[in-house]
Each structure stands twice: as C-alpha cells, then as structure tokens.
Nucleic acid binder design. Structure first.
Lengths: 228, 228
DNA sequence: TCAATAGTGTCTGTCAGACATTATTAC
DNA sequence: GTAATAATGTCTGACAGACACTATTGA
C-alpha cells in the first residue's frame, strides 16, 4: 500500500478554500470573489488556491497566505472545516480541497467592488466546483458549534457590548434569544472580561463594554435554543 | 493563483488514515497494524494508504478500500475526522493525510496477531507520523459528539439492550451515567425501535432488545454529562 | 427463598424562557 | 417629562441526577 510509485497514484490536485463569513445588516454573508483564472474564469467562487509545498507549513498556512494575497485579510479566526475530494469536482482532474471556515468582523473586510462581494448565505448565486455544498457545511458548522462556544463572538471586534454579542449569536445561529437569559448565561460562564468602559449611542442608556476573557472556547451548556 | 504549473506546487503526497475504535472489556481501543513497507516498516501505526486517483471516487472510498484490504472490515461507521498536512509529518515529503474516525463492534474485527492489535487509547505505544495526535483528536471527537448523538451505538451490533447501550456510552464518553436518566432520555428521544424480543443471561431478568430507528443521528440535549 | 439484573416512580436542584420592572442616557 | 435601550428580578416548566422501589428470571 505505502508503495514507492507515487507518480500516478497520488496525482491529486491539492488546494485550500475558505468560507469567510461576516455579519452585515443582521444577515450572515459569505465572501465571494471573481475567479481571475481558468477554470471558471470570471465566475463567483470561494477564495482559494493551490497549496505551495515549497513555502506552506501546512494547509492552514496556505489558507492564510491565500486569504492575505487574495482578500487582503489576515489574523482572522480560522478553523478547518472538512476536505472535499474526487475526480469530478474540478475539471482539471482528481482534486482535494481542504476547506476552512473563517469568521471576521465585517469592518475588517475591504471589498473591492467587482472583484469581491459579501453575499447572503440564504441567496447564493450559482457557484462552480462544490462550493455551494461547502458553504452549506460551513453554515451548519457555525450553527452547530456556535450554540456552545464563543465562535459567534469572532464576528465582533475586540470590544463589544452584551447587546452586540447577543445580536451576533442571533444572526449566527439563526434564532432569537431572550436577552435576560443570554446575559445571565454569558456572564455566569465567566468568558467575558469587563473593560470598565461604556458605550453610548443615541438617546439611550450606555452599555458596558466587554471583551473575550480568552480565545474562542467551548462550554457544555448551550446559549439559547430557539424562539420565544 | 489557480495557475497551470501544477508540477511542483501541488506535489503533495495524498493519503488517508483511519482511527478504528472499538470497545473491548469496557475499554476504548484503537486498531493498529504493523507497517509492511517503508517508511517505518515493522512499526505499529494507524491503517492507511495512498489515494488511488484512478479508482477512488473520493477520500472516503479510498479509506473504505484500504480498510477492507488491510483490515478486512467493511460496512463500518466512518466519518471524516480532519486533514493533517505539512512537510515534515512524512519523511517522503510534503504530505496530506485525510484522517477518518471509524467505529466498529469489536466482534466484527478479526485480529491477525502480530500484524494487528487493539490497543487501549490510554496506553499508546510510540507511533510514527502524527498518528498519536490523530488518535487523540479522534477520541476527542467521539467524546464531544457522542454525548449528543447515537455515535456510541455504532460500537454495538444491530440489536442491543439498554444496558449494553448505556455501557457503550459510558466507555465512549469516559463517564458514568445514571441508569434511570439514561433510559428515560433515550426512550423519550424516539431513536430506538423495540424489536419485541428479549435477551436473558444468567440468573437475571431478561432485557428488551432494541435497535436504532434510523442511522446515526444527533439530538440537541446531551446524554449524561458526568459522574454521580 | 436468594442473587442479580431490568425497569419504574418520585423528589429535588438547576436552569432556560418569559416577562415585568427598574436604571440610565439624550432630548 | 418621553423615548429608547440597558440591566435586573422573579416566576414557572422542563429535565437531569439521585435513589428508593418493584419486576422477572434461574437456581
């Protein structure tokens, strides 16, 4: 099995693709770009590219390199989603795509109109490869893991109010959450640090500003199941 | 990025590896085999091998082919775990391993002594590549997902009693579960079908025999958190 | 009868959802 | 004062853990 003729047996095209999600206008959006090269040149697609074995330390490094080069974003939350493979998903031949899920505050994305766009995950255009399926899987991952982790907080900046955090959870999970329950649970989990500062808007009581105590973490009880 | 010189950029070795877990003597065990070829010939390692782009429909098909050829098992529960990659994990060069998690009733494994073994996940030997890390991730996946899914039932045969099912959950999750709570929750979830039959052992009341109503599924509430 | 396991009933603490109420700001 | 949002308090139903209790078998 582990033979030494690696010529034909392993001639799989090795790529990475990213589902970069952000929240805009209380809607979950995915970053698409227009493909600059064949195949599917000019079509909307997920940002992605080849792994460069001469420079990439692993798939995640390749993904971060490509996101920086293609979309100009770095330092975002990134986790591996799943790997998609097969002879037909790419017209160039048997291919492997190690897909990633990325969450980013929308303010950190500078969209170069015509070359990139944030599109609602509920209203996707036709996409090449199996990108539609990858996006669906990414949203499912966010919905599943988001309920018992601080993942949705990655849509926010470093500092945020509880109301902003709740809104991120509501959009990310696609549910409405009772404000009282949300505050009670989030605060009791000890995942937030009180910055001591407040933020006021128009005609309303200022809200305390918090930040995540540690990085993205998980907990065992869920943050809001569904409606009300 | 999506260039056309696929010669050097994509020369990653493409393999699949399986963490086949089973329960023996109320312990979680992983299937290891002795590598028949270099590198690490003769060492214990996870069963795995190259993707064959001329015959495999995707990575999972490759994994099933290899498990059948190397371990003689087929039809087991199999899901993708994660993909491991990098220049150093395999001495042959930049490699990709699409790792899978498989659960199998131990009775379905016929261990060819000397060539294969079921080893406690708590007491692993030294392993080549990043196989130790892959096993740790697989156990973590089982522990995480098992609490709110029927995953641990994959350690059982088609038919089983509630006590057997509870035991599988206890070993899979590494916790003790209250029998009364377990029965109440499992039965209320409607995930089991009563076969109408019973199974008796020695000197004891016979237990009803159930089977899974559908395949492996998930639910939102957890089956037993921890101790008592 | 006993031993052993299967299975039921019930109490209690925890906690999420619901919702009423109070607090703090700008105007 | 009003409007608007932030934050708190409290009731209630659901449910998991605990555990006592009953049921059914072989010997």
């Amino acid at each position: 099995m582990y033979g030494n003729d690696m010529t034909n047996e392993t001639a799989a095209i090795s790529t990475v693709d990213a589902v970069v999600l952000a929240i805009v206008d209380d809607e979950l959006k995915v970053l698409l770009h227009t493909r600059p090269n064949e195949p599917f040149k000019g079509y909307w697609a997920l940002p992605g590219g080849f792994i460069h074995v001469d420079e990439d330390a692993d798939a995640e490094s390749a993904m971060r390199r490509i996101l920086k080069d293609k979309a100009g974003v770095s330092g975002l939350y990134l986790e591996q989603l799943a790997t998609y493979s097969g002879p037909d998903r790419d017209p160039r031949g048997w291919s492997i795509s190690i897909a990633h899920l990325a969450l980013v505050p929308s303010a950190r994305l500078k969209i170069d109109a015509g070359k990139a766009a944030l599109v609602s995950t509920d209203d996707l255009p036709e996409l090449p490869f199996d990108h539609k399926k990858i996006i669906k899987d990414a949203v499912a991952r966010l919905r599943g893991k988001g309920a018992y982790s601080t993942l949705p907080a990655s849509f926010l900046g470093k500092d945020f109010t509880l109301t902003e955090m709740q809104s991120a959870y509501e959009v990310a999970l696609g549910i409405r959450i009772d404000a009282s329950s949300f505050r009670r649970k989030v605060l009791s989990l000890g995942i937030l640090t009180d910055t001591g500062r407040s933020r006021q808007g128009d005609n309303r009581r200022p809200a305390k500003v918090y930040r995540l105590a540690k990085g993205v973490g998980t907990f065992d009880r869920t943050l809001g199941h569904s409606v009300g």
